[in-house]
Amino acid sequence: MESRNTQLAVGLFVIIGVLALLFLGLQAANTSVVTNGDTYKLYAKFDNIGGLKARSPVKVGGVVVGRVSNISLSGDYYEPLVEMTISAEYNEFSDTTSVSILTSGLLGEQYIGLNPGFIDDTVEMLKDGDQIYDTKSALVLEDLIGQFLFSQGND
């Protein structure tokens, strides 16, 4: 039957499409969809965010725990305020936690590194909407070179 063969071929075609989609979803994309489950937000102010962008990863010891969801200027002195969306799975950061803007490799993407602080009875855990005050800004290459040249000149 001609129409049966046609239907069979179309069925196979659709199956190939679904398999290709599965391949893309499972093999190529990041499947641990960190920011799609329950999340909470943390804020941090920096002097300089360098090349940080919305959607840059937030990592703890190299493990992605969230993403930068918004960057804005705040306060009287227009300081960059970074909003981070963190997976609710990781909700045990103490308020002594520090954040820094790091670079993966010499020329790579910039991301936020969270360094969990110590925990004892006197510290509280960070909650949704809290701000982290212990921040370290991005290393800006031009500044570094400038400092290097300056210190060379002093010798």
Binding site: L21, L24, G25, Q27, A28, A29, N30, T31, V33, N36, R55, P57, V64
Partner: peptide, 15 residues
């Protein structure tokens, strides 16, 4: 090859 790809490709944004 695969892990760097996975950390950069996102289901919603890209696919």
């Amino acid at each position: 090859f695969w892990s760097v790809m996975q950390s950069n490709v996102e289901w919603g944004q890209d696919i």
